[in-house]
Design a protein around this nucleic acid. Structure first.
Lengths: 219, 219
DNA sequence: TATCCTTCTATTGTAGACAATCTATGGAAG
DNA sequence: CTTCCATAGATTGTCTACAATAGAAGGATA
């Protein structure tokens, strides 16, 4: 797990800290402070911050400084709109290109996820990662490099951050799992059109929940 | 047009140079060489390169260096697949949110584009920018910040780069314009569903052309 | 008392020097 | 002649010091 360069290491470290909320949204990031804290000089730190800015997790203002981005519900909704369209595409492509091994692995993810729901039905972290694993696997199977990079590297970090911030168990874990299973079946039958449709509907349902949630309940 | 910081300025400069092909694909980018050439020190240059890497226009290998990314047809096709889905979404949203002023401006873009086609029917650059203007306007009108950023900042730079590289006039400019006009009409009538469909078909047609073009003809 | 200006401090932006790493060249051994 | 290793050069990664800028504090004036 050794990163080959300090920038990579620091970037990963800060990314995780921000996503998990260890560094709070809107918190100011002072370069000298952070660099001494992390035991490096300002050079690499600046490059890491720059990268976080590109990934939209940090906002920089010239000559003023950097701060962690905030969270607002509207943005999350916008993200989900995009996911609806990109992940349905991912399903369409995955149905064509997915290897049998990948399909098998996807099934295993579902089984694990179900077991998590039964066993430790309150573990937020595990539950979230189980959910995301399913989506990740499909995206990877699409074979579209841009799609993979956009969704996994950019959108999903932000989605994870939101979920940590809202610190709520997802509203409908059981139903979500069932929808996952349907999508899986469609993929098994190589029915890209159906899988695509189901995925779109799956994410749209989640978005609807968001839209109907009042600010105070969620954020 | 003064950038507030050297990094911004250098970034813009390199971005344009790469997109327009003044710096060739796969060309190696040596830090000291570039920095002296641009009259700055390596610090800001490195940050600019980092940013270009995030935007997928430059590839960096630790301890080895940076080089401009290459171009391959398959990647362009993958990009168009994504555009199909994201820009159709943009149409759907734009039909809802677009102001009358924005609609008027979009119409003006079309008129200009048509005139360009008539007058200087070989000017590649003008033609391309006219085409892109139309798409940009709709994306902006969607009001979805992530959508705007993803398409305009990330995907389109790469699309432009490909077009400059292939150095061919687009195959079907006249037909493309007509399709634009249809999309415009749908937006005028606030028919998001139709506009979305037409945009999807519009981009798909372009992709089909790409898919049927042999390597040698295009790249 | 409120407002404007000046000065000062904290923080970011930039430059240049040093350390760590990779690649290529050349020679020695099989 | 080929393969391997060692050394040298070039290039990137990192650190420290300095310059430039923004924002805050404090005083002077109306």
């Amino acid at each position: 797990m050794e990163a080959r360069t300090q920038v990579d290491r620091i970037y990963q470290q800060l990314l995780e800290a921000i996503v998990r909320g260890d560094i709070a949204p809107n918190e100011r990031l002072r370069e000298s402070e952070l660099s001494t804290e992390l035991g490096i000089s300002r050079g690499p730190l600046r490059e890491a911050l720059h990268r976080l800015e590109s990934r939209r997790l940090v906002r920089k203002v010239p000559h003023v400084g950097a701060q962690v981005v905030g969270v607002d519900r509207q943005e999350l909704i916008e993200l989900y709109q995009i996911r609806e369209n990109l992940e349905s595409l991912a399903c369409e492509l995955a149905a064509k290109h997915m290897t049998d091994e990948a399909l098998q692995e996807l099934g295993a993810v579902l089984v694990r996820h179900e077991r998590y729901l039964d066993d430790q039905n309150d573990q937020f972290y595990i539950q979230q990662e189980g959910d995301l694993d399913f989506h990740f696997n499909i995206i990877q199977a699409s074979g579209n490099r841009w799609l993979i990079s956009l969704l996994c590297d950019e959108l999903y970090q932000r989605v994870r951050m939101f979920r940590f911030q809202s610190a709520h168990r997802r509203g409908r874990p059981r139903q979500a799992l069932e929808e996952h299973q349907r999508i899986f079946e469609a993929l098994q039958q190589r029915d890209g059109e159906l899988a695509s449709l189901l995925m779109k509907r799956h994410i749209r349902s989640a978005r609807r929940v968001l839209e109907q949630t009042t600010e105070e309940t969620l954020l």
